[in-house]
Design a protein around this nucleic acid. Structure first.
Lengths: 341, 341
DNA sequence: CATTAATGTGCACACGTGTGCAGAACCATA
DNA sequence: TATGGTTCTGCACACGTGTGCACATTAATG
């Protein structure tokens, strides 16, 4: 049904080879002929088939992106950053959500290979080593962005969690807080560890105590995780005067739980999040948080991928490459000076 | 590099035709031979090329999804609904964001056609008629979901905004409100009109006045749109005692603006949103809103698309088909009885 | 045993595009 | 005119998979 180069060839009274060469800007075709062919192609509304071209050239002009969930605002912002770069350079994106489900991971890996993608970005999700390795065999580059795992990948873009957490902790210490609680999430191995290390680093630099009961690992990294963590802290005889949360979703849960217990924020307790998702600016009170450059993370991952695709076969591909981005502290209403009592 | 059916054929000592037939479950291949071939294929880790298959069969096993933005929580929830259905049945999704940009729309339409997608879902975004028609020429089915345009498409899934708005208005009226304001957004043609009609319908059914200055069209449908709308209402001598917002993002803006003006919600003014995005449950106060079945919208659109793909050439395709879903009112803290003064 | 039917399998071509190679056509130089 | 070079273009094949058709083999029937 669609117009093919053969249709164009028939009308232009040349062979399909000539049409192919004229349209791809190949040398050796006189400008006049090329112009005539291009005119016909455009009149006929010719749009080349990436399928046929991909079969011949072994480049599908398609990339894969795997996230854990599409409807998580943190991931979707990274996705937006990736999408915007590739839209401009003519690559299409296969997007799939793993949902932390092993079966789906396998299906996704399989379908990515089936479509012979030119590259893959794995974004903020655990991914089992066997599925990762299955795909590596197929030779296309894989960039991992913002992952929580400790494992080292060949090409990575991630956020400097240690630095970020230091900023947050130092800020609270400078406000006069001495009893600071931390709500983490064990599933996020590398990330939570980095943030915990930064926290511990600043606390000991200021010679402040780190009490075991002030570090709480919640089972959920969503809103309810913050609620659970708050319940824990409120049950203590000696409560922290400030709470650092693993992410903003949990911080929103903390705000909610404190409100229900009539603990005033920031007067009685400061709360700080992490990520700066869009809603952090609109909670009540607005949330002090450390802004991860989510869009940039996506953008940098896309740039790294683009370089890998462009580079002549396996040149840059062999080198390990890691890019680390830093965010910045965003002070809003949920944090304040600790009044000496 | 990857294993092909020819590799399998060589090892099994048959022709590649036989391998092809054995793997696709074609009749006429004895079970024993088929089993032997399948075993070899699996041992070699054979994964068929959707590219080559697509060229021959004219089915790419890929679908397109176009949204206006990926990082808008409303769209991404619909996307999640679409993704989850197709993941299970072996279709991959090309996802693209139009950003309401004409140039990008054109590029997207072109790249979708290039990849010879089997179907397209246009999701909650304006899409120029010429680009839409360009794609229609290529014969693949197009399902439009939750669009704001008045134009009728052949295959549509959308939400009953009139019904939803009636529920909201009636609820506020039953709480004793007589002065009700409405913040809309003109860009969302059909949607905003449906909600306005529902509002007007209930108001006149209750013989309540609809004042011109109580209907405000904001230029933005995001948070700032709500802020602008609130500013307008606060400038009036006779202020409404309840505000219905076009969507939750705007309602969050309203909550914020009222808080800054020391207007207590819901004591002095009730606020109701629309959509029930995830954060509506965590604003301060939590937001009363009308829940659109976003996930279901995506799911229904996917189901309709799947039926269209499966149906023998152009059978169901010719019929117009529209599916309308209804949501439900979610009462939270931002609305309360109007005290008679 | 001859004939027919049923069953398996390979050959060859197709899908739409790209490309090495050879030949054709033209021009310039000896 | 003969020779060599340059410029242009078509033939033929390739990519990986699917499939109509014919042929080969075996089984069933007379």
């Amino acid at each position: 049904m669609p117009v093919t180069i053969k249709d164009i060839a028939r009308i232009a009274d040349v062979s399909h080879s000539t049409v192919s060469r004229a349209l791809t800007g190949h040398e050796g075709i006189p400008l006049e002929t090329a112009g005539r062919i291009k005119k016909i192609a455009s009149d006929l509304g010719y749009i080349p088939s990436a399928v046929a071209r991909g079969l011949k050239t072994n480049r599908s002009q398609a990339l894969g992106v795997i996230v854990s969930r599409i409807d998580d605002p943190f991931f979707s912002e990274i996705l937006q950053g990736i999408e915007e770069l590739f839209q401009g350079v003519g690559y299409s994106l296969f997007v799939a959500a793993s949902n932390h489900d092993k079966v789906r991971e396998k299906d996704i890996a399989r379908s990515m290979v089936q479509h012979r993608i030119d590259g893959l970005i794995i974004c903020s999700t655990h991914f089992r080593a066997d599925h990762y390795n299955l795909m590596r065999q197929y030779g296309f580059p894989i960039v991992v962005v913002g992952n929580h795992e400790i494992a080292d990948y060949q090409h990575m873009v991630y956020h400097d969690d240690f630095f970020g957490s230091c900023q947050v902790a130092r800020y609270l210490i400078e406000l006069g807080h001495r009893k600071i609680g931390f709500i983490g999430n064990r599933k996020m191995e590398r990330t939570t560890q980095g943030r915990l290390d930064g926290f511990a680093h600043e606390m000991s630099a200021a010679r402040l105590p780190i009490r075991k009961e002030w570090i709480f690992h919640s089972s959920s990294d969503q809103i309810e995780g913050g609620v659970i963590g708050t319940r824990h802290f409120m049950s203590l005889a000696d409560r922290p005067s400030a709470i650092i949360c693993f992410n903003d979703m949990m911080a929103i849960g903390v705000l909610r739980a404190l409100h229900e217990q009539d603990v005033s924020v920031p007067a009685d307790c400061s709360v700080v999040g992490f990520d700066d998702i869009i809603f952090a600016a609109y909670t009540q009170p607005t949330l002090t948080t450390f802004a991860q450059p989510k869009y940039q993370l996506g953008h940098e991952a896309a740039k790294m991928m683009y370089a890998l695709i462009q580079s002549p076969a396996g040149e840059a591909k062999e080198m390990n490459q890691t890019r680390m981005l830093r965010g910045k502290l965003i002070v809003r209403e949920s944090s304040a000076e600790q009044k000496t009592r």
